[in-house]
């Protein structure tokens, strides 16, 4: 069993990701994520202090479009996709807290 990630950390990550895990799943994921993270630690064998991180392989900059209005989607089409709609809006059950 790897110590790369604890059961509590997996539980916290699941909450952040809006996933519910059973106790059994929590055990399984703790072990599996631990093994993957353990493997990832082989990156630490290198001295990367002076390496500049690359988030993206695409070198082009300043991609912009002109400020031109283009047609929007038909509202009925869009709301027909919604699990629940009311008064031309997307309906959701009560929201417990303010947005951060």
């Amino acid at each position: 069993m790897s110590d790369a990630i604890s059961r509590d950390e997996v539980a916290k990550v699941a909450r952040l990701a809006r996933l519910i895990l059973s106790d059994t799943e929590l055990d399984i994921y703790t072990e599996q994520l631990g093994l993957i993270l353990e493997h990832a630690r082989d990156m630490n064998s290198l001295d990367l202090a002076d390496v500049i991180p690359t988030a993206h392989p695409f070198g082009v900059t300043n991609v912009v479009r002109e400020d031109v209005v283009t047609p929007s989607l038909d509202r009925d089409t869009v709301l027909a996709m919604a699990p629940d709609a009311q008064d031309h809006r997307f309906a959701v059950p009560r929201i417990l807290g303010e947005a951060p």
């Binding site: 209005v69 008064d87 997307f90």
Partner: peptide, 21 residues
Amino acid sequence: KSKLFCGCQNHFGSEPNTNIC
């Protein structure tokens, strides 16, 4: 005239969900 990342109208007071893509 349009939104930050798409061509939908940037307009206050439109009918709900009419400026979406």
